[in-house]
């Protein structure tokens, strides 16, 4: 695994912004490099399982970040029992590449990221909300979404003598 990581670091030298060895190898990559790196991991080291795609909003992070969002993706290799984390920094409104051509479950995971954070995926086949209703305005996991704001679908009951 170590030599494969070295191999990847030399092959994707321009795309990999940062590499960290934490509880698993962590790649911080540009969005152009992201699908290529995932494809290399899938095809050469059998990372067949896409565990999760999520995102982080760094709006109120103590240290200001150059990019507001970070897309976080975890892969798992059944053959080697190894995990890998890939992070992609993104600006607000910037489109992220989709992994739907590599992993079937990426479709719903990316729809969830879109639903909660509003990050668009430019080659996603069916990008719409997955958990919330269509009438919902905004994206609730953004740090500037007012945490108390509710968007009810019903009319409030008022002044009912029988209540």
């Amino acid at each position: 695994m170590e030599e494969f990581v070295e191999n990847l670091k030399s092959r994707f030298a321009e795309g990999i912004l940062l590499y960290q060895e934490r509880e698993m190898p962590v790649f911080v990559v540009t969005k152009g490099c992201y699908p290529l790196l995932v494809k290399a991991l899938l095809e050469e080291k059998s990372f067949q399982v896409l565990l999760d795609i999520t995102a982080v909003d760094y709006l109120r992070w103590p240290e200001p970040q150059p990019q507001r969002f970070e897309l976080v993706c975890h892969l798992f290799s059944l053959d080697y029992n190894k995990r890998v984390r890939i992070k992609v920094p993104l600006n607000q409104g910037e489109e992220a590449p989709s992994l739907t051509s590599l992993y079937g479950n990426a479709s719903w995971l990316e729809r969830e990221v879109y639903d909660m954070f509003g990050i668009p995926f430019h080659d996603h086949p069916d990008l719409r909300r997955i958990l919330l209703y269509d009438e919902f305005q905004g994206h609730p996991l953004l740090k500037d979404y007012p945490w108390k704001r509710e968007q009810p679908l019903y009319e409030e009951i008022k002044d009912d003598p029988n209540r």
């Binding site: 609730p140 979404y145 945490w147 968007q151 009951i157 009912d160 209540r163």
Partner: peptide, 16 residues
């Protein structure tokens, strides 16, 4: 649960 997703008591929707 006091957030974007939860009804703050079903008496907002139906009589209890």
């Amino acid at each position: 649960y006091h957030n974007y997703s939860s009804v703050q008591g079903i008496d907002h929707v139906i009589p209890v």
